[in-house]
Write a protein that binds this DNA or RNA. Structure first.
Length: 478
RNA sequence: AGCGGGGUGGAGCAGUCUGGAGUGCUCGCGAGGCCCAUAACCUCGAGGUCGGUGGUUCAAAUCCACCUCCCGCUACCA
């Protein structure tokens, strides 16, 4: 039997950023889902990467005295290290400078051009020479550049346009037929309303700089950011053996780029005659101690800082337990530590500690695990399939409480009941397997300690009545 | 301005779609229990007219209308 496939992506990030909590959130979410579908037996392809092209990069490279390629090469390790640090297991790290990507982008652009969806025109905007960038009217302050405070001029540039307006109806039809395409559903109406208001054609090329992919039908022009970037999701599946993964099951993104993914992206694909992704899931933003994260105000928390607070697993756990997946949440070091202490150390850690200790002293004896019946496995599976990660975690931790209660009520330290201890050890196994996508390091420690494999089917397989040793402390309190 | 989201015991949140005793979670507070465990764990309790007004209904936090306050988005900007 052929396994079902699951293809998941994160956005490709701008490499001159420092990987921070926002990047980490999306990427961990993708990691959790891909791990989950892997243990459920799916053939998973998890893609992340960087968007190396664009004017900002070209300028930053110039400033650093490097070629853009060399410059981005030097930035990529930061991201790879961050993901390693967060225990993220992606299948490919794509860069928009990858040869296979460039080739695919050009092929599709040519196709789109041949179809007549790209035409030459003029782009008009407010151009600041100091910034070497265009601004929209509302960006200006009294007609001046917001950064240089200098008078700004209206400039025209020859550019190619994509006929986005042509796809208004097709998009609306598509949304109607695929109600889950834009998720969570409260964002859906927002997009639909805006699309109904009408779509402008999209300027897709620039001649003012050359760090990008040249248009195949006019080499003077380079493809401008979005088209180049969005196609990465597709080009990654044009590699040999990877074709089966298209279309994407879920594009995980931040709500700030939902418009591009739910409007431009399907329009580009329809135009190129490519089948459309199943779902674009826009999650919320992190505020920091109730304030919006902004670099200028120093309210960013980067991956190193995040992990330094209480470790990888606590960070991963916190991000998905705090708040509803899909909505905004507030990041606070204090609350992360609270959750680490109260939930991971006191509930989960302590449960493992007391049970393994009792099991070491008294041994365990195989029996039917009635305790496990209280685990709402079906519901948990359903929640994760609907990407309701916070709710799934709630149910798993509800079961941890039930286990702690069970220890309390059955008093195995008094009765020395080997069967009760067996039930508990077997239940911890189930907990560890279910938590593996969220806190892999901890689950693996538990698995090693008790002696089982992290596979979904193992949840229902009775654990062999091995000798158990008291576990080390899983989460030290802070 | 338009569109979207929100206002639930002291704090932070679920619950609202698919109405059914104010149910639940984390923390804080009060009392007790346990002693296996990471001074952890378990039980009980105090505390809310579910933003306001009106409507539908046998029944509304939940559905409808209006009002009020908070927050976000408004496009070629990753």
């Amino acid at each position: 039997m052929v396994n079902k496939k699951f293809y998941i992506t994160t956005p490709i990030y701008y490499p001159n950023d420092i990987p921070h909590v926002g990047h980490a959130y999306t990427t961990i979410a993708a990691d959790i889902l891909s791990r989950w579908f892997r243990i459920r037996g799916y053939d998973v392809f998890f893609l992340t990467g960087t968007d190396d092209h664009g004017k900002k990069i070209a300028l930053a490279a110039e400033k650093a005295g490097k070629s853009p390629k060399k410059f981005t090469d030097s930035l990529i390790p930061k991201f790879k290290e961050a993901w390693k640090k967060l225990n993220i297991k992606y299948d490919r790290f794509i860069r928009t400078t990858d040869k296979d990507h460039e080739k695919i982008v050009q092929e599709i652009l040519q196709k789109t051009y041949d179809k007549g969806d790209i035409y030459k025109g003029e782009y008009e905007g407010y151009y600041c020479i100091g910034c070497e960038a265009y601004y929209t009217e509302k960006d200006l302050e009294n007609g001046c550049c917001p950064i240089h405070k200098t008078k700004i001029e209206k400039l025209k540039e020859e550019t190619y346009f994509f006929k986005l307006s042509k796809y208004q109806k097709a998009l609306l039809d598509f949304y109607k037929k695929n109600p889950d395409f834009i998720s969570p559903k409260n964002r859906r109406q927002e997009i639909i309303n805006r699309v109904k208001e009408g779509l402008n054609d999209l300027s897709i090329s620039r001649t003012s700089f050359n760090w990008g992919i040249p248009l195949p039908f006019d080499k003077k022009h380079i493809c401008y950011v979005w088209q180049d970037a969005l196609y990465n999701y597709y080009s990654a599946t044009r590699q040999k053996g990877k074709e089966k993964y298209w279309p994407t099951n879920i594009h995980l993104i931040g709500k700030d780029i939902l418009w591009f993914h739910s409007v431009y992206w399907p329009a580009f694909l329809i135009s190129a005659g490519i089948s459309l992704p199943n779902c674009v899931f826009a999650h919320g933003w992190w505020t920091f101690d109730k304030e919006k994260i902004s670099k200028s105000r120093g309210k960013v928390i980067n991956v190193d800082e995040l992990v330094a607070i209480a470790g990888v697993d606590s960070a991963r756990y916190f991000l998905f337990r705090e708040g509803v997946f899909g909505e905004d949440s507030d990041f606070s070091e204090k609350i992360l530590i609270e959750r680490h202490n109260n939930e991971l150390a006191n509930k989960l850690g302590n449960l493992v500690s007391r049970v393994t200790n009792l099991a070491e002293k008294n041994q365990i004896q195989k029996t039917t695990n009635n305790l496990l019946k209280k685990l709402k496995l079906k519901q948990i599976e359903k929640l994760i399939k609907n990407y309701e990660l916070d709710k799934a975690l709630n149910l798993i931790f509800e079961f941890i409480d039930i286990c702690n209660e069970y220890v309390q009520n059955k008093k195995p330290w008094e009765t020395k009941d080997k069967k009760v201890l067996y039930e508990l050890v077997d239940s911890i196994k189930a907990i560890a397997i279910l938590l593996w996508p969220f806190i892999p390091e901890t689950s693996e420690k538990i698995a090693k300690q008790i002696g089982f494999k992290i596979k979904f089917d193992e949840i229902k397989k009775p654990i062999p009545a091995n000798k158990i040793k008291k576990s080390e402390i899983l989460f030290k309190k802070i």
